[in-house]
């Protein structure tokens, strides 16, 4: 089942630095999709287009169509200026490369998205805190100090907190932009394990920080090079049996 359908998507930044050309790809529901490729290929830009965070950047033009098929049967035209971006961002959540915890307590970070959406009931907020921390494999480590500042956590814990923060809102799609690039191997494997666990309930789009990570977690993989989608394939196919020479060179480590 397709969760997000991207058709003929173009994007140009004002300074012309980075752009995406004619991207067409379907993102399957309840699976991990991986966007890989060398830096500057446009993976992050595409990721940010999916919840309109590009609105905050200096974008000169976008065209094409990106549609999100909601669990309630509703279709959202993501690029439509009339689309309620706040509601969209609650459905499509983002985890960034650098773990940025908000200057609040651990609990405050987790309930932030729900509170700004207008949720006030303490019991529901409390349930969301525990559930999301369990899913991000952080509950045992922090359950006794939920009211301490989030900044006091270690880098790996902070990134799992960021993942939990997204999960707390129960979005339908979770975007992860090189979420483990600054983490040690143990924290990285904890994050990857969490992703494997939650993928049955969420659509996950990941920009991995290495080809190895991509190969480990991908149910579906797409290779981007200089603003173009070179090839997309399910599961390990892209790594074992790439059809394009450039993909092969990249996954075998000849460049990038």
């Amino acid at each position: 089942m397709v969760k997000i359908s991207i058709e003929h998507f173009h994007l140009t930044y004002s300074d012309g630095a980075e752009s995406l050309r004619d991207i067409t790809i379907d993102i399957p529901a309840r699976a991990i999709s991986v966007f890989l490729g060398p830096a500057g290929g446009g993976k992050s830009s595409l990721l940010r287009a999916l919840n309109r965070l590009n609105d905050l950047a200096d974008v000169r033009s976008v065209s094409g169509q990106i549609r999100l098929f909601g669990d309630n049967g509703q279709t959202i035209d993501i690029l439509d200026p009339q689309t309620d971006v706040v509601a969209l961002r609650r459905l499509v959540s983002m985890v960034f490369a650098r773990p940025v915890t908000l200057p609040l307590s651990i609990r405050g970070n987790l309930t932030y998205g729900l509170e700004v959406a207008g949720m006030r009931q303490n019991n529901l907020l409390g349930e969301a805190v525990e559930r999301s921390l369990q899913q991000a494999a952080l509950w045992e480590e922090v359950k006794d100090r939920l009211d301490e500042p989030a900044a006091a956590l270690s880098g790996g814990q902070q990134q799992r907190l960021c993942l939990a923060r997204s999960l707390a809102m129960q979005p339908e799609v979770i975007l992860l932009d090189e979420p483990t690039s600054g983490l040690d191997p143990i924290s990285t494997s904890k994050v990857e394990a969490s992703l494997q666990e939650i993928k049955n309930n969420y659509t996950i789009v990941l920009v991995p920080h290495s080809v190895q990570q991509a190969a480990r977690v991908a149910d579906h993989a797409a290779f981007f090079l200089q603003g173009e989608l070179i090839e997309a394939a399910p599961g390990p196919n892209l790594f074992i049996n790439p059809t394009d020479k450039r993909t092969q060179d990249y996954v075998e480590g000849r460049f990038g």
């Binding site: 706040v86 609040l104 700004v116």
Partner: peptide, 27 residues
């Protein structure tokens, strides 16, 4: 106040004013 706080807050579905009132102003 670091720009990343604003981006994160907005990515969590906060409006601009919510971001200002809950994060930027207190900081």
């Amino acid at each position: 106040v670091p720009q990343s706080f604003r981006v994160v807050s907005i990515s969590l579905g906060a409006t601009r004013w919510q971001t200002i009132r809950r994060i930027v102003l207190p900081e």
